[in-house]
Structures are given as C-alpha cells and as structure tokens.
Amino acid sequence: MEYFKYLRQYVGQKPVILPGSVVIILNENYEILLQKRLNGNWGLPGGLMDLGESFEEVAKREVFEETGLTVANLKLLNVYSGSKYYLKVSNGDELFSATAVYYTKDVSGNLKIDFNESKDMKYFAAGNLPSKLNNNDKGFIEDYVNRK
C-alpha cells in the first residue's frame, strides 16, 4: 500500500507532510517533458515517497511508472517546502508537500503513457509552456531556467 494511503487511515483528512520528487526531463533541444494529468492540468512527472525510499529513488521510480522512461545522472535543483506548498485536494485531504526537484538530460527508453495517471505527454519549450500548468511546477521550471 502506498504510504500516504496508509497514513490517511490514521489521520483522516488532517494536514500531513508528504515528501516526494519531480523531474525536469530535457530532450536534445532542451524542451521539458510534461504530462497532462487526468484533471486536465499539465505537470512534471513525479510523485510521493514510499517508506524507505530516498528522494532520488522516488524520482526514478515515479518517472518510470508514469512515462516508461529511465532517468539517470539526476541533478538536484532544490527542495521546496513550507507554507507556500500547502494543498487541499479535491477529496478534502490537506497536506504540505516537501518536494525534491531534479533535472536531467540522461534519459533512455520509449515514452509510454500510463493512462491511469495521464491523458498525454509532450515536450515543451520553456518559453512556450501550457496555460494549465500546475503552479508549483511552473515555479520549479522557472527556477531551473533562471539557475546560475
């Protein structure tokens, strides 16, 4: 059972801290892979940590599960947490996310959409991102583009 589901059995919908990872996957043109989620919003591939996983292991597992791609040589952009990352999801669950954001161009495999989690996947130029992009992910991408 996924850790967050296990945890919810005990705390219900009360706020919890949920760690996870996302990956900015770049193609040869430095375009960024985004997934169109079931709710119609676009976002970076990634997800929540299970017990015993590292942030990097979460990133690799979630990318593979959601895209069929294997990522390597992940570089940490930043870890984002705090009150700005509070969410109340559509079912009423409350959470504060702690998200490790990685980026890489080291990708192998064939893109394969998991239609249980996504409607579509597509590469976008950083200057031409979709309007329905998750706000947090938009900030992560802006930080990646503006990094020094």
Rank of each mutant, 00 (worst) to 15 (best):
N41W: 11
S83V: 04
M121C: 07
S118I: 03
E31K: 11
G92E: 14
L34T: 12
L77P: 06
D120P: 00
L74T: 08
G68M: 08
I24A: 02
T67F: 02
I113P: 01
V79W: 05
T99L: 15
L74W: 02
L26R: 11
L129P: 11
V58I: 14
I24Y: 02
A98G: 03
A125P: 06
K105L: 03
G52D: 04
G40C: 10
K132V: 00
G68V: 07
A126V: 03
A125I: 02
L69A: 00
L95G: 02
W42S: 01
K119H: 09
L44C: 13
D106Q: 04
E117N: 12
D114Y: 09
L69R: 01
T70E: 11
E57W: 03
K112F: 05
K132F: 05
D114K: 10
A98K: 13
D114F: 09
A126Q: 07
D137A: 12
P45K: 10
K132L: 15
V89F: 11
N73L: 10
G46K: 04
P45C: 10
N91D: 13
K84M: 12
K60R: 15
G40N: 11
E53I: 02
L111V: 10
N27I: 10
P130V: 05
E56K: 14
K132H: 08
N41C: 03
L51H: 12
N27C: 09
V58P: 01
F96M: 07
E28M: 08
P45D: 06
S90W: 12
L51D: 10
A98L: 10
L69V: 06
R37D: 02
E53H: 06
S81D: 03
V79Y: 05
K75I: 09
F115V: 12
A98V: 14
N116E: 10
M49W: 00
F64T: 06
Y103G: 03
L69F: 10
N78P: 01
D106T: 14
D120H: 08
I32K: 00
S131N: 15
G127W: 06
W42N: 01
K84A: 12
S90R: 14
K88Y: 04
Y103I: 05
I25Q: 02
N41I: 02
P45A: 11
N134E: 13
D137E: 12
A72Y: 07
N128C: 10
L95I: 02
K119W: 04
K122F: 03
N110D: 15
K88G: 05
